[in-house]
């Protein structure tokens, strides 16, 4: 059950990060996020803020309660996971502060810049996490199918 939930969350994470990255690409060329692009970006962010903490809880449960971590594949997944959490947290916090009536325009520009860097940094982090997770599954499945 936990595995299924984790897989659904993982799928949600990959999909949301993909959409968020694609919609944010124009920023790299100096454009501003607005209109329908911003609308889709905001919708995808709703998925992210839900699946990322859910995934974190499930991952913690699997790692600490069930103790499934194995070998170097686990190391790769570990690094990917924590990098995803850190960059994701940074991306979410910066946009959250922007939503509160506290940041001035200048501060908001800074926050949005950090948000963009953190968001783009999340892409390799998620890739690492996925790659590690897949490798871990393969390792486990090889061990379970190897006789003796």
């Amino acid at each position: 059950m936990i595995k299924l939930a984790e897989r659904i969350c993982l799928l949600g994470l990959v999909a949301s990060v993909a959409v968020l990255t694609l919609t944010a690409l124009p920023v790299l060329w100096g454009s501003h996020l607005m209109g329908n692009t911003l609308l889709v970006h905001m919708m995808a962010s709703g998925v992210l803020v839900f699946v990322l903490p859910a995934l974190a809880v499930l991952w913690l449960m699997r790692t600490f309660c069930i103790g499934e971590a194995v070998g170097s594949a686990s190391q790769l997944e570990n690094i990917g996971f924590w990098a995803t959490v850190v960059t994701g947290l940074l991306a979410i916090v910066t946009v959250f502060v922007c939503m509160l009536p506290v940041a001035s325009t200048e501060s908001m520009h800074l926050l949005v810049s950090i948000h963009a860097y953190a968001g783009f940094a999340m892409v390799p982090a998620v890739l690492l996490f996925i790659f590690g997770a897949i490798r871990l599954r393969r390792t486990k499945s090889m061990r379970s199918t190897t006789p003796g």
């Binding site: 803020v49 839900f50 990322l52 903490p53 959490v85 979410i92 946009v95 959250f96």
Partner: peptide
């Protein structure tokens, strides 16, 4: 906003 705040809380605890 509450969802984000909750999300931030969970992620902070995770961290």
């Amino acid at each position: 906003k509450f969802l984000i705040a909750g999300s931030i809380g969970v992620l902070c605890v995770t961290l």
